[in-house]
Amino acid sequence: MSDKQYTTAEVSQHNKEKDMLIIVDENVYDVSEFVNEHPGGAKILKRVAGKNATKQFWKYHNEGVLKKYAPQLKVGTVKETAKL
């Protein structure tokens, strides 16, 4: 697991077929290699690539899913930008 910090703008750049990041809660996950293994299908991951997928994630998954996959998929956290 990495402690690299990403802004939401940086995450939004990673929305292509072989370069897909998503945000769940405050964590950033690289789902590029996982997309074809996703039990719910690749289409849903492609739809949320580069975005905050927290709401969609918790609608269909429980904490056990995160515990199982986080170690290999988590690449960092969301860095809060200064609010002016």
Results as ranks from 00 to 15, higher is better:
Y60H: 11
F34S: 11
A49Y: 09
K46T: 00
N52D: 13
A53D: 07
K18I: 01
W58L: 15
A49P: 13
T54P: 11
K43G: 06
I23G: 03
A42E: 06
E26H: 02
F34W: 13
S32F: 05
E17T: 14
W58N: 14
L45Y: 01
H61L: 07
S32Y: 04
P39M: 12
V24D: 08
F57Q: 15
N36Q: 08
E26C: 00
G41I: 07
M20E: 03
T54V: 13
E63I: 08
D25E: 14
I44N: 01
V28C: 02
K55P: 12
A53V: 05
H38P: 04
A49L: 08
H61F: 00
F34P: 06
N36R: 11
E33Q: 11
Q56R: 14
L21P: 03
K59E: 15
D19T: 12
V24P: 06
K51F: 02
L45E: 02
Q13V: 10
A53P: 08
K18M: 06
Y60I: 08
E17Y: 14
V48S: 03
S32V: 01
N36D: 11
Q13D: 08
Q13E: 12
D30S: 02
G41V: 12
I44S: 03
S32C: 06
F57T: 15
K43L: 08
E17P: 14
D25M: 14
Y29C: 00
N62T: 09
D30Q: 03
V28H: 01
N36W: 10
Q56H: 13
A53S: 09
M20N: 04
T54W: 12
G41W: 07
F34N: 10
